[in-house]
């Protein structure tokens, strides 16, 4: 697994509707509808309030999710795929 660190974008309020997170991403002007586990992953890698720190490697994200949730299957592979999706959407960047 790569050791690159991923961090969620700084200002990203969202609302939950029927289990989906609706995220308006002001820097890109785009709105995203996110299904689980994307909101959960974003919550794990949100930056600190002062804009410093935050972020995690894919391995750390898996560990944090395991600490909170019951997970089945090849968690590492799925988290890697989900991170790639979040990067593509511009909601996560390299920390």
């Amino acid at each position: 697994m790569d050791a690159a660190r991923h961090i969620a974008d700084a200002v990203m309020p969202s609302v939950m509707i029927e289990g989906f997170a609706v995220v308006f991403h002001a820097p890109s002007g785009m709105t995203h509808l996110l299904a689980p586990p994307l909101p959960e992953i974003l919550a794990e890698i949100a930056p600190d309030a002062d804009g410093r720190g935050g972020g995690a490697t894919a391995e750390e994200i898996v560990a944090r999710l395991r600490a909170t949730y019951e997970l089945d299957g090849d968690v590492a592979a799925v988290v890697a795929a989900r991170l790639a999706e979040l990067h593509a959407a511009g909601l996560v960047r390299a920390a």
Binding site: A35, L38, L71, A88
Partner: peptide, 20 residues
């Protein structure tokens, strides 16, 4: 008992983007 989190299949897409 911790809440089960659905991860989805690796190939499935979990993002719908509305692009103005």
């Amino acid at each position: 008992r911790r809440r089960a989190l659905m991860l989805g299949a690796a190939g499935a897409s979990m993002v719908v983007t509305i692009r103005p």
